[in-house]
Design a protein around this nucleic acid. Structure first.
Length: 408
DNA sequence: GAAACGTGGAG
DNA sequence: TCTCCAAGTTT
């Protein structure tokens, strides 16, 4: 308790024993805390990146049920992995996890290395996840510094602490302790007690050694980071219905934002351009399809991480040409009832919901006469619903059975 | 180092 | 309505 008196860089070790005892008592029964296999630990860490526990938990359960092992995940098609990720965001995580599984099965007999340095070589394995997996799944003595831990250490020292500093400091504190439990206890403390707002210092097992608590203003650390207001853009999208009541959808390219997900084709409205003209232009550019644009079918405001969109979806009718994947990865005509088989982003899911709420929108008085009749939009599966694993797998008809010819 | 990358909850 | 950001990684 008397260490680091002279204001040096070394920090007095907080009462780690008290922390571990608190954790043994207060730890939440989270789904990834049962059966700590390397696979389940890894899936959990991917799902949890930048994502709240309450949001991640149902996705984790569904994901490991549908893909119970590295091998099961490796042999699944990309589209199914993305479907399991639908609505969760940061879809590159799903692509990387899938790639990780395939590389593991192909080159490493489906076994994850226990060494955090070697874990770093795999896609999606950054400094935090590699340390978390190494310590939680294999007991490797490496500190895992996530947002929670960084906040806890910053407050203990009453100054902003970088990840590198945090790892160095924590390496000393964790010496001789079970690494996995130590890391998890630090994270759990940050999540339940040392919260960003309204920290519960009264019940904190570490308050005895906490400089922020001593200073009387724990929320002062870590200091908030400034960010600028994200821009908002106007986007036009086409709800194109063919003569058989099918809807035109396009798959975004991997590597693009929302890569691999399906969407109503469209794009950004250029300055001075009308939404209608934008939709006509985008469908010609991306699909080589000429359409007639009718009245608005849905309006969705949506915020992404670094910008927002005002999405205007319009009923459209194909006029000339066969849709080809020119500016996208693939294109299909689908029955509305089948849309649940494809993965869409949240914004496009909201468009679908709006279409289902008002299927007769195109037939209201005043609507153009060229409106598609019988464009009845039937409900289908949404993210967050019960898993549809076996049923989906058993289906004989693949979504592609209605695809337009000559598209890859 | 900064920006890109989704979504939803809290205040 | 608006701001901030959560079990981060990649480029």
């Amino acid at each position: 308790m008397r260490a680091a008196r002279g204001g040096g860089t070394a920090a007095a070790a907080p009462p780690i024993g008290a922390l571990l005892r608190w954790f043994a008592r207060a730890a939440r029964p989270l789904p990834w805390r049962t059966r700590r296999t390397p696979y389940r630990v890894t899936v959990a860490e991917f799902v949890l990146q930048q994502t709240r526990v309450e949001t991640a938990a149902p996705y984790f359960r569904r994901f490991v049920r549908r893909f119970p092992s590295w091998r099961a995940l490796a042999r699944a098609p990309r589209s199914e992995v993305l479907k399991a990720w639908e609505g969760l965001g940061y879809y590159a995580r799903a692509r990387r996890l899938h790639e990780l599984a395939r590389r593991l099965v192909r080159d490493h007999r489906g076994r994850l290395p226990a060494d955090p340095e070697r874990l770093r070589d795999f896609p999606g394995m950054g400094p935090y996840v590699a340390a978390a997996v190494a310590s939680l799944a294999f007991g490797a003595p490496v500190p895992a510094v996530d947002g929670n831990v960084r906040r806890v250490v910053s407050r203990l020292l009453a100054r902003d602490v970088t990840d590198d500093e945090g790892r160095e400091i924590l390496a000393g504190w964790m010496a001789g302790r079970p690494a996995g439990r130590f890391n998890e206890a630090m994270m759990e403390l940050g999540a339940l007690v040392c919260r960003r707002r309204k920290p519960a210092c009264g019940v904190c097992p570490l308050r005895r050694g906490c400089r922020a608590f001593a200073a009387g203003d724990p929320v002062a650390w870590p200091s908030p980071r400034r960010r600028r207001r994200p821009p908002r853009i106007l986007v036009g999208a086409a709800v194109t219905i063919d003569g058989r009541g099918r809807v035109l959808v396009a798959r975004r390219r991997d590597g693009d934002m929302l890569g691999g997900l399906w969407e109503f084709p469209g794009g950004k409205v250029e300055p001075g351009e009308s939404v209608t003209r934008c939709i006509r232009r985008e469908l010609m550019e991306e699909l080589g399809l000429e359409v007639e644009v009718g009245p608005e079918a849905a309006r969705v405001r949506h915020d992404y991480s670094h910008f927002g969109i005002d999405l205007r979806a319009h009923w459209c009718r194909p006029l000339r040409g066969v849709p080809r994947p020119i500016g996208c990865a693939a294109v299909r005509w689908i029955r509305p009832a089948d849309r649940g088989r494809l993965a869409f982003s949240r914004a496009d899911l909201r468009v679908w919901e709006a279409l289902e709420r008002a299927p007769a929108a195109g037939q209201r008085e005043g609507a153009s006469p060229q409106q598609p009749r019988a464009a009845r939009i039937a409900s289908s599966t949404c993210p967050g619903e019960a898993p549809r694993g076996t049923a989906a797998r058993r289906r004989s008809a693949r979504p592609g059975s209605t695809s337009v010819p000559a598209v890859s």
